[in-house]
Design a protein around this nucleic acid. Sequence first.
RNA 1: GUGGAUAUAGCUCAGGUGGUUAGAGUGUCAGGUUGUGGCCCUGAAGGUCGUGGGUUCGAAUCCCAUUAUCCACCCCA
Length: 422
Amino acid sequence: MAVKYTRPRGTQDVLPNESWKWQWVEEKLRRTARIFGFDEMRVPTFETTDLFSRGVGEGTDIVSKEMYTFEDKGGRSVTLRPEGTAGVVRAVLENGLLASSPLPLKSYYLQSCFRYEKAQKGRLREFHQFGIECFGTHEAAADVEAMAVADSFYKTCGVREYITLEINSIGCKACRPTYHVELRQYFDNYENDLCETCKKRLENNPMRILDCKEDKCKEIAKNAPMMLEYLCDNCATHFSEVQELLAEAGMQYVVNPRIVRGLDYYTNTVFEFVAEGVGTQGTVCAGGRYDGLIEELGGQPTPAVGFGMGVERSLMLLEEHGQLPEPPEGPLLYAVAADDAGRAAARQVTIQLREQNVTAECDIAARSVKAQMKAAGRVNAVFTVVLGQAEVDGGTVKLKRMADGEEQEVLLADIPAVLQSL
RNA sequence: GUGGAUAUAGCUCAGGUGGUUAGAGUGUCAGGUUGUGGCCCUGAAGGUCGUGGGUUCGAAUCCCAUUAUCCACCCCA
């Protein structure tokens, strides 16, 4: 009796006919990172639970209700990473990189993350994030370089024009508290008109109200004081430097004073790349500065900036705008066998080509010539050759170009050389 | 966590008011004579109609429950 196994909710299979898209995007991301001088960092899929509750923030939705947390056999509480930054920071500290490697330290990652959410379009429980982190400088140039990585990636993919870069500053330890007081005072006047969740936010994190999607809250928030008006001199200067450098780099952006990130560690500059029509999940890449996180996780106070980019969402965006390339070519040669002598010859040619790093295939399913030709067409083979006793005896074969059916006669022994010269 | 929709072949879907062996397209495999793909033609395989109950002589079809999926809210990448 067959039990049917289905994949867990919110997960996805990438099938053979789609995997090339992933590889293509991944390669582009890695290449972009390399061009900007970021090196890959690979960290564990799970970490001590505490790292995330500390790093991401006890009060955030991610930590309070979306983590895949479990106890291992040793009784330790571990968690599948819900985001990339905390783990990277942990690794950087644990390996003493801030003391031993040249600063700024620039690294990137491409990995899956896990969040226990109700799945929908563009929102999965296991999803993939590309991200970069830059440690050791508080300069605005670092903020802008981070944004430039994403900007450049989207540009080379041909979708930059469908995406808006929104930036904001949410202040620092010095100026945010005063703003919070002001903000709370403002919202206190409207407390009864706010939605239920916002009433709670009023206590915990009043800035989140600015971000609320409820009409009534939006209406109230319209006239609320903005963080930008309360930035201390340092933050204000920093923010205007960011904008100058963005302009200098020719990067289109808009200031959106309502951007509030959902992770606690952000300070100062925050930004989002927002696209239309990726489900309702418009944010395709988001990040900012997190000058307090390293200290929070036990390191020396160190400024840092980075972002996370949703790979699935970016892929959806590329697909939607027809910016994915044609599927890759199949094997350069498919050697078709007509009889036993031909089978041996086909295997031989295939082996030779593969040894020379040329993609080649032959039938391994004992199929008819016609079926083999069909198979060759299906795998997108560039050339085919039919081998049988006659070819083996005569030593010449017809190399057929599948695209137009044109055949050229070559020596059986010359096939590798001919194909390699193309 | 909240709301809405849907569940029939690998995929996309038909199957008025319940009635014999549940269909199509596509995909897969095999053929259309002797050793050649894409088009065309033929055939085959493939479904306990999500699952469990109920109504009925009889349920893919009506009712209830359950599960799953999708979409949206929340939140986020």
